[in-house]
Nucleic acid binder design. Sequence first.
DNA 1: TAAGAAATTGTTCAAGCGTATAATAGTGTC
DNA 2: GACACTATTATACGCTTGAACAATTTCTTA
Lengths: 212, 212
Amino acid sequence: MARRTFHRAPEAERRHDLIEATLDCIAEYGLEGATVRQIAIKAGVTAGLIRHYFQSKEHILQEAYRVVIARLTEKAERVSGDAETRLRDFIVINLTEPVANSRSLSLWASFISRVSVDPELAAIHREGYLSFRDTLEHLLADFLSTQGADSSPERCRRLAIAINGLLDGLWLEGCLAGELFGDSELVEIALTSIETLLGISLKLVDAPRADG
Amino acid sequence: MARRTFHRAPEAERRHDLIEATLDCIAEYGLEGATVRQIAIKAGVTAGLIRHYFQSKEHILQEAYRVVIARLTEKAERVSGDAETRLRDFIVINLTEPVANSRSLSLWASFISRVSVDPELAAIHREGYLSFRDTLEHLLADFLSTQGADSSPERCRRLAIAINGLLDGLWLEGCLAGELFGDSELVEIALTSIETLLGISLKLVDAPRADG
DNA sequence: TAAGAAATTGTTCAAGCGTATAATAGTGTC
DNA sequence: GACACTATTATACGCTTGAACAATTTCTTA
């Protein structure tokens, strides 16, 4: 039988492709659909190659989870401008594409369901979560103090927990059933709710630039 | 070989036990750990019996998901008393045991990750979600109107979406990393945040009775 | 250009999967 | 108390899984 054509790729590219294929499988068929063979087919290689790059299936899943978390948080953590703009952009980014879509949720939920089972995934999760909330807490502290409002650590902590929860929940609702909401309804609800929680109104500005 | 002892149970009880065993398996090992054989072992029966009660593995999972949703929502939907008490109890119930614990989250996340893959699960999910938000919307409308506040449908809808999101998000945070928060910190944060969102303070009352 | 190292393929294996079905053991009925 | 009924066990089947490994191709470099 004719052997398939043989393409040798740089290590970084191949690893990236394999992880990407893993995410595709999970998004399409769930964690159980991400078998070594399916991943290989998706990546256009044979199953054996995966073991060449990853010690085991567990390891490729862990790498994949790191990528998922990074994609969910990196955009929001790179906001720039004055304190108000950064806070506002942070909110908007987390509730619009590409952070908020059903694929993201699918991936996130698949891994979350294993966080309580797999200690390695739990560690990866905790790191991402704390870093995200920390970013939010700093944004709040900066914004509140520039507005001359109470920015005590205790208040910032509580606000960060509440607003983080609100964003998580709205993100979830939007991803799970986006068609139940108007075009930018969730973003508007988030912004006005957070204004109310802070007791300060966020002035209207353009949508954040979608640069990388 | 000696045949194992043979216990014949009433249909309802056996179905219940099998579903319970399924949930145990999922909570402990994730969806992929819920194999027909594992479920059977957990339930103390042989694998074949599962097919006697459920047409296929898909079917037992669907039934199990219905049970999960019911447990997450039924307590909160049965609040009683005046409008303020009902709203307050609704909030507290959703953020304390047994609704808020890591097992609940584990189960919820396992199924959520398949909602986007399995249309049957998606239907079950949507029904539960809409019913939950509807309950909250009515609680808000009742409470706002007894307080003489604006209770227009538009305002109630937006508040229900925001507060539902907030509760979902805090529930998630509490389940995933309860030890990061003080004893009833999340409940307090939820209550004060919701007071702020409504512009009305919820008077202090005892914790809701834990009756069935 | 030959040799050795590394990447990739193709094949194999034991274990576990969901499902099907035949045999057995309780239950209720006349 | 025999008989039908069905809940339950036990076993078997075909398939997929993660993993292991030998064979093959490409790359590097001397």
